[in-house]
Amino acid sequence: MSVQMTIRVDDDLAAFIDQAAKAGEGSRADVINRAIKREIRRRAAQRDAQIYASGADLDLETDAYAAWASRNASRVWSELD
């Protein structure tokens, strides 16, 4: 099921969406839906990383990664987009 929505976006975002649609990446709605789904996945991954980092045991090698991920989360998540 889908719901029709009317939204306003900045000019630069509209240009990006139109460019992607013209490049064959689907309709405007397809481009926007993928972006929203990507944001949902990014937020879920960020929540998971925070949960994982909060229970880190600093004596374990894998917890060193959790600490690194916690410190670098904003940079890591921006690279996923």
Rank of each mutant, 00 (worst) to 15 (best):
A73P: 01
A21M: 04
M5V: 13
A56S: 11
D30K: 11
A66C: 03
R8S: 13
D10N: 12
R71P: 06
E25T: 04
A64S: 07
A29L: 04
R8W: 02
V76A: 13
R71W: 03
Y52I: 08
A73G: 03
Y65T: 08
S70V: 01
A21P: 01
F16Q: 06
D12S: 13
L13G: 09
A20E: 14
A56Y: 01
T62V: 06
N33M: 05
L60D: 09
V9W: 03
I40C: 09
R47Q: 10
W68K: 08
A69S: 13
L13I: 15
S78G: 09
D59G: 15
A20M: 10
R8K: 13
A29H: 11
L80T: 09
G55W: 02
R34F: 07
A56G: 04
S70D: 14
A14D: 13
R38G: 05
A73K: 03
G55L: 05
Q19Y: 00
G55C: 03
T62S: 10
A56I: 05
V9T: 10
L58S: 12
D30R: 11
A64I: 04
R75T: 14
A44Q: 14
A69L: 15
Y52P: 00
A49F: 02
R42C: 10
I7P: 01
V76L: 15
D57Q: 08
N33R: 15
E61V: 05
L80Q: 08
K22I: 09
S2Y: 02
A35D: 03
A69C: 14
Q50F: 02
R75P: 06
F16K: 11
S70E: 09
R38E: 09
A15V: 10
Q46T: 10
A69E: 14
S2L: 02
N72W: 06
D18G: 04
V9Y: 02
Y52N: 06
V9Q: 05
G26K: 02
L80G: 04
A64D: 04
G55D: 06
D59W: 04
R43F: 04
L80W: 12
A29T: 15
S78C: 12
A15P: 06
D11M: 04
A69D: 12
S70G: 10
A45Q: 11
A64F: 02
E61K: 03
N72M: 11
D18F: 00
A45G: 13
A53D: 01
L13E: 10
A69Q: 12
A49W: 00
G26E: 01
N33G: 01
A53Y: 00
S54H: 09
A35W: 01
I32Y: 00
M1V: 14
M1I: 11
S27Q: 08
A53C: 14
A64K: 12
D11K: 04
S78H: 14
L60Q: 11
F16I: 07
S78N: 14
I36D: 03
